[in-house]
Every structure is written in C-alpha cells, then in structure tokens.
Design a protein around this nucleic acid. Structure first.
Lengths: 130, 130
DNA sequence: TTACATAGTGTTATATTATAACAAACCTTA
DNA sequence: TAAGGTTTGTTATAATATAACACTATGTAA
C-alpha cells in the first residue's frame, strides 16, 4: 500500500484553517490561530505551507504574502493560477476561466519560449466596493 | 511652470542603480550599494522604491521581492505588467506583447468585473538554462 | 515676496515575513 | 530489522518592510 495524498497532522490543521477562511491568511496569523493545537513555531507553519503550495492545495497571493485554499479542482500542481484582488476590501477570489487558462498556458514569448507555470493577479474593486 | 516628472535625489540614485543592473535587485542589496552615496537607512530606500513603482519607472517582481527597471515605454503607471522568470538562473525579462496586454487588459471575469491593473509572472527555463 | 501645501529627507526603533540548523520521531518498504 | 524519506519540535536568526517624528526643499498662489 503506497502513500495516499493525505496530509500530515500539521498540514491538515493548517489547511483546515485556511480552507474555512473567507479571506487570505498570513503565516503569522495562522501561527497565532493554531497555537492552541500545538503548533508553536514559525518553521512548523512555513513547512506545512510550502508543502500545501507544492501540492496545489493552497496558493500564495504573492502581492499580499498570504494564502488561500485552492477552489479549483483542476490546478493540482499550482501551475496556472489567477486571482482577482479587491484593492479596497482586500477580498481575493480565484479565477477559474478555461479560456484564460488555455490562452496563458500556451503563451509563447517573442523568443518562442514556453513556460511551465504562471501566476496572474488582477486588481480592482469588487462588487461590494464599487 | 509646473512640476516635471523628474526624480528626487534619492529616487534618481536608486533608479540609476536598478536601471543599470541586469538582474532584479532587492531592497537591502540596493541599500548596501547606495550607502556610499549617503542613503543610510531602509526607509529611504523603500520610499524611493514606492515612488518609482507608482510612477512606473520600476516594477516589483512579487515572487522575488525584487525590483527591475521598466523596459517598456508604454506602461507608465504599472497598470499592466508581465514578466518571464527563469527558475534556474533567476533571470527576469519584462514581456512586452501587445496582444497579451490587450487580452488581459480587457479581461472580464464571470461576474463581469473589469480590472484596473494586473501583474503576470511566467516561470520556466530561459534559453541559456534549457 | 511671503505663506501655504506637498513631497522629500534623515533618523531611530520596531514590526513582519521567512529560513538555518539540528536532533528526534514516524512511516514505509525491502 | 534496517534503510530511507518525510515530518516534527525547537532555538536562534536572517531578511523584508514600516511607524513615527522632526526637519528641509520645492512648487504654487496670493
């Protein structure tokens, strides 16, 4: 029996927290929130986050140094990510748009280079803030 | 006579450094390199960087926390930025592709939201590293 | 010219984000 | 059981970024 894609204890604790959050969580916010569950130090958090990002369970919002759960069944390896970010309320939504995804995944630059991975962040005002 | 788009002393020093660099520079690398020119403390660097980013003279590579000079005469306000990033040698190139730019600038998500700004980062291997 | 507003500067201290390094525990599979 | 990988716990510290305050320079408008 080989290893399932199951999460380890710390990974599960941290994934659960991020997954039930409606907004991106920062590493030290996570740390604070899981201390009651025995996770006491930054490396424990960052290690779990790294692993969750690698496996595509969560994504890092680079412009905010914060993490959201993946809402897209297709992006298992975080190869193609796109987000909309509200500049007013800080809300973040993962964009799941097949056409956009296809367009960018097959994008070649002028030198003909293809890429393995991309991350796209859109900024504007969300419906509520408009 | 109204104000030109000229840079202040610190802004100019820091822009010159970034502009002549072939690779993205980090804030503390910049600080180290401009100390001989009288810029001694982080806030001086970050303030100049903020202003240069706002005016589109430089861009921040979010995934690297590093800064590059704008190579694109069109993106004066940093509203539409795209980069190719080599995962091996860390080289960064600004992508200037009118079609891509147009496609993303006019992108609407499923809720019909338009965005003011985007930042796109492609990852892969550059020509040298392939 | 003076006076006001705005932007920029210099400085100290501190907040926030992230990793190094090492030892121990825990699974898996041979 | 032994070997190898991954996860954990821990302390310390590195790297990135901002708060706050006093002061200076510059542009604009009366």
């Amino acid at each position: 029996m080989h290893k399932e894609n199951n999460l380890s204890k710390n990974q599960q604790i941290i994934f659960d927290l991020i997954n039930k959050s409606s907004e991106p969580l920062k590493a030290y916010t996570i740390l604070f929130n899981v201390q009651k569950r025995g996770i006491k130090a930054p490396p424990q958090v960052y290690r779990a986050l790294d692993k969750l990002v690698q496996t595509g369970k969560i994504h890092k919002i680079e412009s905010k140094n914060a993490f959201v759960a993946c809402r897209n069944t297709n992006c298992e390896m975080s190869k193609a990510t796109a987000f909309s970010i509200c500049e007013s309320c800080e809300m973040v939504d993962e964009i799941s748009d097949a056409k956009l995804n296809k367009y960018l995944s097959s994008f070649n630059d002028k030198k003909g280079t293809k890429y393995k991975r991309f991350n796209l962040e859109f900024f504007g005002l969300c419906k509520k803030c408009k």
